[in-house]
Design a binder for these strands. Structure first.
Ligand SMILES: [Mn+2]
Ligand SMILES: [Mn+2]
Ligand SMILES: [Zn+2]
Ligand SMILES: [Zn+2]
Lengths: 140, 140
DNA sequence: TCCATGTTTGTAATCATTACAAATTGAAAT
DNA sequence: ATTTCAATTTGTAATGATTACAAACATGGA
């Protein structure tokens, strides 16, 4: 999963998104973080290397990425939206102790998208997540 | 599922909650609505019968109810918290057309709480929901 | 160089929720 | 019945994430 700047750049170009410096940095940070950071964490970290970075740019860029399915946003903390790489075709685990959000693959007729209808309602999206204590936090 | 005021009152008393007029009305509305309204919808509807009702009372009361597991709050719209009756030991369906949220019972090792651990992470809560078009909205 | 378009930025607005303190209620004690 | 006191309710102000908006900036072609 080694991702260099060239790969990130071509990922954007593949989606027809102009690979500006701030966009590259945001996508790079999102990939390297891996724990589904929120907009503010992304902003704070990139502001260190791009002092003129604006919060609005972070929000604009994240919306752009979500539209092109390069990124998915999840609201499971109740407080903010957390962003991760790729489409949201997986489930998540939120650690109540460290706040980290980890990708989870589960297998059941619902999670696997086999079921398209339930009680007469037409299913278009399936979302699932767990809350608890992550592996790292258990030992401490 | 016929619930009269006396039953609602004793439900509160069973939890050690003083059954004030506003609390009775809020719980009554929550039960009768059934589609997981948000705080403002609850407020707007009860303000019709209790003109002095305050939004703060709605929020306070909902927090109280959630603490005693009389009610559960779910954040699946991204915009607000939606409240339903009872503990959140079930899943939900959000209709993208009418905004209604419906209780759903699903059965799989994850949803049924059989699995207590996943990838080394300790599971304490399981949340699942679907988005799509509800039965009522399909025919129209 | 000039222009057009897309991008970034800073500030102001929005909106759900929370904080806070004053006003009100109601039941127990006198 | 009056006093008292804690619980409850209320209105207003603050918070915090997100969005709206318009000015500043960058870039590539005519
Ligand atoms: Mn993810
Ligand atoms: Mn429910
Ligand atoms: Zn953790
Ligand atoms: Zn519907």
């Amino acid at each position: 999963m080694i991702t260099n700047m060239e790969q990130i750049k071509s990922q954007l170009e593949k989606q027809g998104i102009k690979p500006t410096y701030q966009r590259l940095r945001i996508l790079e940070f999102l990939i390297s973080a891996g724990n589904h950071p929120n907009a503010d964490t992304i902003y704070e970290n990139i502001a260190k290397v791009i002092p003129t970075m604006s919060r609005t740019t972070v929000y604009n860029t994240l919306s752009l990425f979500v539209e092109s399915a390069l990124v998915h946003g999840i609201t499971i903390t109740g407080a903010d939206v957390r962003y991760g790489i790729g489409e949201a075709n997986h489930h998540h685990f939120l650690c109540k102790k460290c706040g980290k959000i980890i990708d989870i693959e589960v297998h059941c007729p619902f999670a696997d998208g086999v079921t398209k209808e339930i009680n007469g309602h037409q299913i278009q999206e399936i979302h699932g997540y767990f809350k608890g204590i992550c592996k790292d936090c258990i030992q401490s």
